[in-house]
Amino acid sequence: MPVRRARGAGNIGDVIFEWACRGAAILVLALLGAIIVELFIAGLPAFRAFGLPFIWSTEWDPVQEVFGAGVSIYGTVVTSVLAIVLAVPLAFGVAFYLTELAPVWLKRPLGTAIELLAAVPSIIYGMWGFFVIVPAFATYLQPWIIDNIGELPLIGFLFQGAPFGTGIFMASFILAIMILPFIAATMRDVFDQVPPVYKESAYGLGATTWEVMRGVVLPYTRISVVGGVMLGLGRALGETMAVTFVIGNANRITTSLFGPGNTIASLVALEFGESETGSLKLASLLALGFILFVLSFIVLAVSRYLLRSRLKA
């Protein structure tokens, strides 16, 4: 609890220090507000020119000066959601192994290794993905998937096309590896917070480790687990450099997951350099930035809300 000032009278140092702290806090608030307002104002010409259909229009034609956010919003959402689908089971496995299964001497080195995975810069993931994973996938795995799974009814259309390696699926795969450590770390932290008595009672009844996890730990932590997943989703939405390397960068919506696409962040990173100051294209890119900000803000806010009990503890 904050300790009240003992002898306030005449102590100018206290007043200055408290206001310095408060001023810095207000600055942080102002920063977030300024980011929202600036991005909105900068994107205003695009919103004005294209109206609300800007959000779903799939047009991106710099020659005709017609721009729409549809394709990149679609790419952003699809790659992020697919990344979550791929990353969550893995992250759960890692967190479960680290909290319940790993021998004590292995816990720390393994935990550190997973955390280092989170520290590797995004651009390194991009290079690694582009120069190592993409060729390997296109040579060994992708032709087989296209020939076999691509022929299946109902889901086959998702896996058709030419084996280029790059595309929506590859972007999701690299994103999944990048967000895996964030989700795993959150899950590990909340799993560790389950009171040992609960687990011990279940073990005492003869439950297996998996039954304790499914019947005691997961129900106890499920809200925070969802919060951790949302945190990973928030990261995936705005990831730029890695995606730019591997997504194939084409402004169209393909039904196949192996087709190229783009995301808001990758489109902005690629096209920004080719946009003139004051052009409608630049305004459209900044408008895309505003949309991305709104998307991530919602996801992150929900994540914070779900994780609030963990943060208090």
């Binding site: 942080v28 600036e38 991005l39 705005g238 990173a269 900044l286 991305l292 991530s296 803000f297 806010a301």
Partner: peptide
């Protein structure tokens, strides 16, 4: 609480947007 919330949002916000913001200002 509001400041803590905003700071946490900034912590996870896409860094590319920080770049766009500074470009603007």
């Amino acid at each position: 609480n509001v400041v803590r919330f905003v700071s946490d949002i900034l912590l996870s916000a896409p860094s590319i947007l920080i770049g766009l913001f500074v470009y603007q200002i």
